[in-house]
Amino acid sequence: MEQITEFLAMGGHGAYIWSAYGITTIVLLAVLVVSIRHMRGQEYLLQQLRAARRGGASHQNELDE
């Protein structure tokens, strides 16, 4: 137990060290989450549009991509 407290205190500079690591984690996670969500949203929208086209104008299938 004492070891853990000592580890967390980091020789009295714990607040600085842990907030540095905390900020890094938060920023990197935020970048990752935003990127994944955006990608999912765009790819979903693309599927929807393609499905709609296939339903509406099937003769144009060949022109996709």
């Binding site: 990752l32 990127s35 994944i36 955006h38 990608m39 765009q42 790819e43 929208l45 693309l46 549009l49 991509e65």
Partner: peptide, 13 residues
């Protein structure tokens, strides 16, 4: 790679 996939999908949309 994730963001490139977004960009590519956006272009196709």
């Amino acid at each position: 790679i994730l963001r490139l996939r977004s960009e590519l999908a956006a272009t196709k949309i």
